[in-house]
Amino acid sequence: MMGRITQRFEALKGQSKTALIPFITAGDPRPPVTVPLMHAMVAAGVDLIELGVPFSDPMADGPVIQRSSERALEHRVSLLDVLGMVREFRAQDARTPVVLMGYLNPIEVMGYDRFAAQAGDAGVDGVLVVDAPPEESHELVGILRAAGLDLIYLLAPTSTEERIAKVAEVASGFVYYVSIKGVTGSGHLDVDQVVAKLKPIRRMIRLPVGVGFGIRDAASAARIARVADAVIVGSATVRRMEDLADMPQRIPDTVCDFLSGLRAAIDAAGDP
């Protein structure tokens, strides 16, 4: 059976559209914000949602996403709580794919089998585990796939062709190209370098390629939209939430204004 992620990318391909994927951390700044925000983002035109699982030691993340994790952990948001949020979201939205993004340890502690079963049951479609490269995820990828879940792999500017081939063997759903050397939300996006690196990736991997890290506004989203199958926006979204951490009722409108702007820019970039 074709998963929700693949279905969504197939549909977009048919319309010659590039996907918009926002990242938010589950439970940031408070747990009740998350599910209504997910629905609002869908209404604003996003195609897939990356939902961050808070972790105490997010070693690949920059300060903005680190602080979002800390805010969620102040409310003791656990992996089980995040699965509960997805379940709640799914009750009203059966179509928008949801990918959990986080670090391996909470999944290790829950147990791969238990996690896969519960995530599948909650309506999760894919999992991106930042610190589980192909070499360390043989067991996890098998268990997730058996439960109908995609394991989304990262590729980076430092990935050699040998490594791209390794990812090609195991990846499903889509692959996530990290556009800069650095942590989330850092650095200067060099679109020419992204274009150059996407060549071997496209040649070796048949899956859709999303590009993230360093996309912060409509202009950078539009430039990436011309070369990628999905534009992924994390820190720029989360920063807007942080600014409103004390006024969470204003978060959905502010975030959706921002995402609608990106949506329009991405769609315009695709027009001939």
Binding site: P133, E135, E136, Y153
Partner: peptide
């Protein structure tokens, strides 16, 4: 043991 890091660090 092992090598549980983000992709960017795998090559270095």
């Amino acid at each position: 043991g092992g090598r549980f890091v983000a992709e960017t660090l795998m090559y270095p």
